[in-house]
Amino acid sequence: MIQVNEAVTLLLPFQCHTLRLSHRLLKSLGGVSRFMLRALDDGLTLGQVAEVTGLHEAALGRQLVFLSQHGFVDEPAEGRAPALGERGRRMLAVERLLHHDRHSIWLDAFTLRQQVVFMLAGLEPAALLPEPPAACQSLAAVMPCRAQPYWHFDEMNRLRTLLDAQVLTALLATFWPGADTLIHEELDNWDYELLRVVEPQVQYLPLAFPAGGLRLSSGGSGRDPAWPLASLPVLELETRFSCDQALPWPVEVPEAQHHLIELVSNGLLEHRWSPARLLPDGRVLTLPVRTQGAAPDLTPVALPAGVAAFVKARPHRLTCSLDGSAIAARLAQAHPNQAFCSDGRKREEMAA
């Protein structure tokens, strides 16, 4: 692993979707039953409900019996008007929550496996950028979008992968702060639908990493197939020493030196790292070259009189793999209770 010892910002592409929420039990009650619950909550009598709706009082009486049998309305005492039961009051509370039943969510457009899903919810619109900025004061790199966008039913399946009971509860709490008890009590009845759009809008979320926060590993075996590869700029320095053969005294010529320096934070890489070329498909996270900063701490070499040093510098880019767990953890830290991930292992690290 290599830690980039400089602050770096990743620009993560997400697609905006609209999620419509519903409640199975509330939907099954029908309009008349829901109206009667609201009317009883307002203190109206059965006669007043009949007057407002134009329905026969006998029909409303049968509807009232149905609501009473299923626990929505308490059995009225002799001479008293019917009153809402605990279950009826809960349905009205659910109905008030669903007054605004459509919410914006953002699904990732960069992971390469459908089972790995990142979702954002409850963000301010200004938190995401319509396009990557042309220039940035800090080092920034754009995460590439996947080559083929998913169809609507694929995105719905990804959402089902993500929204287990735990994540769904947390998501609803993001939409409805303070309703945690009601959300949990009605967990088995919540339903959702991803509304179809012609082409979801891509927006970019800046995710800042402190110095040492971004980790990479060499490309090849062990890379995470759910993430795009990264392209790390490096400089290969080869220093050779020689002396003039005309010197009349013996001279000890130092051994040749070889260094590999990553150019994001100007850190030295281990010798086992070797230059490699990326395939020219453009679907890589291209890390930028830092144009200013201190030179790497190279061991100085004392040159005897008559010895010359020749330095050859060759720029390369290394194929690297991203640490998806670290990105997931950083995303949750930067956006608590607003970032969700389907991978169980990553989710535990995000919550830690």
Rank of each mutant, 00 (worst) to 15 (best):
L194S: 11
V264H: 02
G122R: 04
P206R: 08
K346H: 13
V198A: 15
G79L: 01
V73S: 02
L10W: 04
L232H: 04
G88L: 01
E238C: 09
F310L: 15
V301Y: 01
Q245K: 14
H23A: 05
H335N: 07
A256H: 06
E348S: 11
A294F: 14
T111S: 07
R20Y: 10
A59V: 13
L168A: 06
L128N: 08
I327L: 07
P304I: 10
F72S: 06
H99W: 10
F175D: 00
T181N: 12
I327C: 04
P228W: 00
L26M: 10
A313S: 14
T291E: 12
A326N: 10
D244F: 04
D323K: 03
L123G: 02
L235F: 06
V284R: 05
Q203I: 07
A329V: 11
P300C: 04
S274G: 12
A352C: 09
T45G: 11
P228S: 00
G222C: 01
N266K: 13
C320H: 06
E51L: 09
T299K: 14
W106I: 00
L287I: 00
P254V: 07
G30Q: 04
L60A: 08
F241L: 09
A140H: 00
L123S: 01
G220F: 05
S22Y: 13
D164V: 04
V198N: 13
W190S: 11
S22N: 12
R345M: 09
C136A: 15
L162N: 07
A134I: 01
A246M: 10
L11K: 01
L229T: 11
Q257C: 10
G31H: 15
S274V: 15
A256P: 10
L318P: 05
A81D: 11
